[in-house]
Structures are given as C-alpha cells and as structure tokens.
Design a protein around this nucleic acid. Structure first.
Length: 581
RNA sequence: CGGGCUGUAGCGCAGUUGGCUAGCGCACCGCGUUUGGGACGCGGGGGUCGUGAGUUCGAGUCUCACCAGCCCGACCA
C-alpha cells in the first residue's frame, strides 16, 4: 500500500520548461522522474515502481523462453572493444575514460564482446549449445542530441540477450524464440507495435527486425501495407524492381538548355516548363545528381527529383568504403564538376562512378544538369546518354509507393523503436576466434544473435501511447498501483473517509491488488482528483459524500466511466474485475 | 558541427532609460476558516540573478569570453 501522506512525491502544476513531448512533460509533472543531466534522469518512487514492473514483465518472458540472466559491469576495459574494432567504430557515441593508471576504459553502449568472451571462457563443445543468456543493465551512449526525456537518454536501461548456436538453423530457431517472446512482452506491457524489417546497418550480419511502437513523436519512420501486412523501416524497404522499359519508344535527342536562375528542383521545374510549355515537367521527371565521396573519391548518386537520398542506406551500400560529403573545397578542386549543374551524362569521361536508384532504369528519359554553369539537359536517356555503373536502393520511400510484395500503396508512419532482434552471424565469434568442438571432433565456429529491448524507454513509450489530456493512464500490467483510493472529507468531517479508504486498501492488498491511497489531510478535493488523474492508476475509488449512504464511487481512469458501489461490495467487485482483465 | 532561443528561489515566470531592501504565481512553514473539481485570510522561510572578467560612484540590467539548457538543421547539385 502506497500512502500519499508518506510517499516521496511532489506533483507540479506547471509543465517543465525543458520538456517538449507529452510523455516527458507528464512524467516530470506527475513526479515519476527528474532530470539531473542532459540525457540523465532520476526515478522517484513511483517511477522506480513503474520501472520494476516493466523489468519484471521483460524478465518473466525472457526466463519463460529459456534464457538465463547474467550481469556485466558497465565499466569495461578497452581491449575487447579494440579487438572487435568498435573502440574506434563507435566514434563519439562511446563514453571513454581513463583510470588512475591511465588505462583506457569505456562505459558500455552494448555488450556483444563481453558475452562472446564469457561464453567462450566457459564452453567448448557443441553439446553445450544452443545457449541464450541476457542481462538487464545500464547502457551509456554519448548521443549527439539526447531528447524527449527518458526516450533518448545518454544513460538508459536495456535488456540485451545473445544467442549462441552451432549452425544457421539453430540461429534461426533462437531468433524465432526471441520474436515470440518480444511479441508477448510488448503485448503484456500494453504497447501497440509492429514488427518491421530493419536494416542490418553498422552491426553487420543478416536478418534483422525491429519492434516499432507507432507514435507521432517517433524518430523512426516505417511503411505499412494495409492489404498484405508488409511492414518495414523506411531504411529497409525493398523497392519494386525497375519497371521494364518499352525499348521501341524512342526519345528525342538530348538537348542542352540555358537555364539561368534555376537553383533547386522547384525553380528548375518552373523554368523548364516555361522553356518547353508542352512538356509538363514535374519534380519526378528531373534527375537529382548528388555528389558524395567514397574514401575521398567522388561518386554521383542519381535519384528522381522528388526523392531524397537515404544516406544510411548509401553508407551501407558503399561499405567498407567510407562515405563523405562532396563539399565546397572538393568542388574547388574539380572545376569539371559544376555545382548546381552536375549531370550524369559525362561522368564516365570524368571518371566519376554513377550510382542510381532502380527508378532510373535504362530507357527512361530525364531532365538533368548539363555540367555547365546555368545549363541543364533534357531528354537525357539512361543507357543512351549516360551509363549507370551500379543500381542501389538509396532513394527514400514516399507514402503511396507500391508495396514490394503486393503492389498496393504503402502508408508511412512515425514510430519509436522498442526492440530489435538481429541475426548477428559470426562477426564476433570470428573476432574472438570462438569455436566449439563439433560432433566430428573438429572446431566449429559459433554463430550468434543479439536482441535488445529498451526497458527504461518503455516507460516513456507506454506513457506516450496511453496518456490523455488530463494525465498519465497506465495499463494494469505496469501501473505503480492498480487502484488509487481518494479520501474526500465531508463537511465538518471526522476523518472517517480516510480510515475507510485505508481499510479498503488493506483489504485489496490482502487479496493481491496494489493500491495507492490519498490519505493526505487538509488537501482540497480538486487537488486530489487532479492528482489522481495525473498519476494515472487504472482505477480510481472515491471515498466521500456517498459514504453517508454506504457507497463509494469507482471510476475507470481510461474511459472516465464512474459508478456508485456499495461499500461492502467494492473490494470483491474490484478483485473480480481486475482478475478478469 | 552550424543556426535560433533561453539561463533570476524547488517549479513556472516578471524585472522599465543602470539606482537604494530583487518581485509575482505555484510549492513549503505557522495560525484560523474551508472540504466533491487545482479554496481563502493573516503571518513567515527560502536568491552567490549560469560562471568569470570588464565598464561604472553604482550592474539582474551594459560589454566580452566561457559554461549550460531547449529547439531546428545536418548534403538536395
């Protein structure tokens, strides 16, 4: 039983000035968290209980799938990360520090290395596998821009697990176990989510899916197909293969036009339409020619004018080459590349490789730069006037694009990444030379998966998906208390409301229902009601004026429905209702 | 890394052309009234005005530097 007369809690009437997103504002106002540093938050008692409840759900589902919990330090020596290459790969996002002997340490952003070493140290036979171990532990990432309170912090809690298998089939099985466990976990946490295909990204490896919680404040975008259920992070969408082009259609010869005052795609469209009123140009018929550098050498990337280049996908496509921007200084050194008027035609002569989105299929005609100041070319045909050296999927997707599996229009929504499951493969077992002896007595390289759930982030996500105009609104599976009992003293009262509220709470607790009692003295009813709504327990019981008639009021925080109930029935009824839900 | 905005009590904010004891609301303490929708009266406590230099008889206010926070942008040829 939590008693508000004793609870270490102060609710705020005003929104904190530094909080932008609703979950952050309410978690601070309701006294769950307090900021202590950029991206660093303390939990007050209600926040800690909420966190513990989420922790318990995550742990139960991990244990249920046969994973075993372990624990690592967050403070780690440099060497393992040096061996895996991540000491440098992680860049500025890694917190590095030195001990008194000037030795390098880091605060772990994730623990693949340590798990690999731990298992390598104990196991050496195929008969020991498969194995899944996990921890729920604090991670540190020096984010370029921590934001949204607990949603993107520099210190946060993550459940990370790792599977160790002898072969690909085993890895696939461990992966499926996680997929199921994650679905159960997020369902129990009351989170609405989609499982989407994800990009493997910097982690290396192959198959990867994300658990995304749709939210307007999300930092990820994903596509969803209403008709077939295809879902993917926008960074991982597979576009349709290039539409076959009717080779019999012949295009007019490429023409160079004088196009002054046409900076940018929008202005160029207007200028071209003036020059050629019959042609009906729009951005999708223009070709963006964007220069990047790979290991210092220029490349040009072609996308339709109404699309953007997805740099993360491009970075993956050119790996292990290092992607960079082609900047002013680079233009200065290449007078043959005219800023604002770069055109694919002529890149071969300049020794610049041409990478293109599949939409720039051979036989398609485009308006593009003419590699001459204030000049553009129209009717530049792929395969005739310019050659594409390599097709890669780098154009951003747009709402309405065809679904790669069924062709229906895709929708795009924002979401928060809640979990990520990932078939790592042998990246880390290779790095650390982790073999076990196979049945044939020969060494066999272990294959791994890594899997994460943002535990502290889940607090913000659940808040974000459930809050309303008057406060937080927790699902019963994580709420700090299931029932919030408000004692409202009657005029000239004797305190019987408070003692009755405490009595109801004691009976509920005895039957396993957690309670929060507003037993504060001298607080006006309005404050109690506002606080109860702000704090967000699923059920609110008001012990007040009805007591004279032997009734209390029961309110559902989510629906706002309220009903008077006989004092003698309230405990039984609540216990039954909660058991049924 | 670039741009914009902001640093005054635990929280939210005001503070004029530089001026005397730095204010208001919430929160907090005391007394009294009040008690079903963020009550009221009276009386209180709480401040290195982000930090450091400088200008000045005098700086929350002006100048410079630094630090911190929030938001936006990260290239579009």
């Amino acid at each position: 039983m939590l008693r508000m007369s004793k609870l270490f809690l102060r609710t705020l009437r005003d929104d904190p000035a530094d909080a932008e997103v609703p979950s952050h504002r309410l978690l601070v106002r309701a006294g769950y968290i307090r900021r202590v540093a950029p991206g660093g938050y303390s939990f007050l008692p209600l926040g800690q209980i909420l966190y513990d409840n989420i922790y318990r759900v995550v742990k139960q589902e991990m244990d249920a799938m046969g994973a075993q919990q372990v624990h690592f330090p967050a403070l780690l020596p440099r060497e393992p990360y040096e061996i895996s290459g991540r000491w440098s790969e992680y860049g500025d996002n890694l917190f590095r520090l030195k001990d008194r002997k000037n030795a390098d340490y880091l605060l772990a952003p994730t623990h693949e290395e340590m798990f690999t070493l731990m298992v390598k140290g104990e196991y050496s036979s195929y008969r020991d596998l498969p194995l899944i171990i996990y921890q729920i532990q604090t991670k540190y990432r020096d984010e370029a821009r921590p934001r949204s309170g607990i949603l993107r912090g520099r210190e946060f809690t993550m459940k990370d697990s790792y599977s160790f298998d002898i072969d690909d089939d085993g890895l696939a099985a461990s992966y499926e176990l996680h997929r199921d466990a994650y679905s159960k976990t997020f369902t129990r946490l009351g989170i609405t989510f989609h499982i989407v295909s994800a990009m493997s990204g910097a982690m290396g490896g192959s198959k990867s899916e994300e658990f995304l919680a749709p939210s307007a404040i999300g930092e990820d975008s994903f596509v969803l197909c209403e008709s077939c259920g295809y879902a993917a992070n926008v960074e991982a969408v597979q576009v349709m293969p290039p539409v076959p082009v009717d080779a019999s259609v012949s295009h007019a010869a490429m023409v160079k036009l004088h196009t002054p005052n046409a900076p940018g795609i929008g202005a160029l469209v207007s200028v071209l339409n003036e020059l050629d009123p019959g042609a009906q140009y729009d951005a999708s018929k223009l070709l963006k020619n964007i220069l990047f550098t790979v290991d210092g050498s220029p490349i040009v990337v072609l996308v339709p004018g109404d699309r953007e280049v997805d740099e993360e996908r491009l970075a993956v496509a050119v790996a292990p080459g290092k992607l960079g921007y082609f900047e002013e200084a680079d233009f200065a050194g290449r007078p043959d590349l005219v800023k604002g008027y770069v055109g694919a035609a002529g890149m071969a002569a300049r020794g610049v490789p041409v990478y293109a989105d599949p939409r720039i299929a051979a036989g398609t005609a485009w308006a593009t730069g003419a590699n001459e100041f204030e000049h553009h070319a129209v009717n530049a045909v792929a395969g005739r006037d310019f050659i594409v050296d390599r097709y890669i999927e780098v154009a951003t997707v747009a709402a309405g694009d065809p679904c790669p599996t069924c062709g229906s229009p895709l929708s795009i929504d924002r979401a928060i990444e809640m979990g990520h499951i990932f078939q790592l493969g042998r990246k880390y077992s290779d790095a650390f030379g982790f073999d076990v002896l196979g049945p044939d007595g020969k060494p066999k390289r272990v294959t791994m998966g890594s899997y994460g759930i943002g535990v502290s982030r889940a607090m913000a996500v659940i808040a974000e998906q459930t809050l309303d105009g008057i406060g937080l609104c927790w699902p019963g599976s994580v709420a700090p208390a299931l029932v919030h009992i408000v004692a409202v003293a009657a005029k000239g009262g004797t305190g019987v409301e408070i003692s009755t509220a405490l009595d109801i709470a004691a009976q509920l607790e005895a039957r396993g229902v957690s309670t929060l009692v507003d037993d504060r003295e001298g607080i006006s009813p309005g404050v109690r009601f506002k606080d109860a709504e702000l704090l967000g327990m699923p059920t609110i019981v008001v012990v007040g004026k009805g007591l004279a008639n032997g009734t209390v009021e029961v309110k559902d925080r989510r629906t706002g429905e309220r009903a008077d109930m006989a004092l003698g029935d309230v405990v039984n009824t609540l216990v039954q209702t909660i058991a049924a839900s």
